[in-house]
Amino acid sequence: MRDITKKREQRYSYGLALLRECIEKKRLWTNNEDEKKAVLRVENIDLSFGDLRALNNVSVDVRGHEILAIIGPNGAGKTSLLNVISGFYRAQRGDIYFNEEKITRFSSHKIAERGICRTFQNIALYSGLTVTDNIIAGRHPHINYNFLTGMIYFPWANREEAYQRAIAEDIIDFLELEHVRGSVVGMLAYGLRKRVELGRALALEPRILLLDEPMAGMNVDEKEDMARFIIDINEFLKIPIVLIEHDMGVVMDIADRIFVLDFGNPIAEGSPEEIKQNQKVISAYLGTG
């Protein structure tokens, strides 16, 4: 850990270096061989609400360094799948392994601490906090002092706070949120809030990032920005990304692999080219045209 309290170390922007250091320490794979291995395995998941079958025997895995897109019509169970992975819904059957550790029965905050971080379809920010505080709040599990230390505000708590703030500013810098960093989130525009949410997920030092429709309701410029951030995160921080998205253009451009769901059933999996040719996918979702 850099000692950002030293004069020499203090600067305006670290260009994600601080966050990168944190993440690199915990990366699951080191060489290109491991890159092909699955970090997250979802095996035979069944999920139903009463009589409604939301997920039916779904298996999917996410490899060390890829962008996996999950597509499918509305109500296909995409968000439910992410909810099951992050422990918000409990699957009736099936298991989830993360880094060969079974996390099916873990509580949500433990899963988040393991490094499975996500954003939400309907923005779920802490609307009463400022942008900076939202991102620092995302760092909660990685702040190294207890509440008593915080209350008394010992010097080391002060240093830790400054360090966390440096990381947060780092992320703000990366996501180009500088102009709104002091604003209360509830008053921001939709596109900006989506970006803050991505920043909060990044602050949690993800080892895998689940993005639930990060580009919904954005215009072309904003979509391009968001796609750039996603690719940057994937390339520069080397974090695997699971992406739910309806914009086929974006998905075909940035995804390494695509997984297609239809009414809770997995119908196809493969590279964008394969998916484009797949008859089942065309009839269920893409359509001819």
């Binding site: 905050h109 939400f120 599990p141």
Partner: peptide, 12 residues
């Protein structure tokens, strides 16, 4: 502000 999101973002 958002207890569900808090739980999913690593806060107990």
């Amino acid at each position: 502000d958002n207890d569900i999101a808090a739980e999913l973002m690593g806060i107990n």
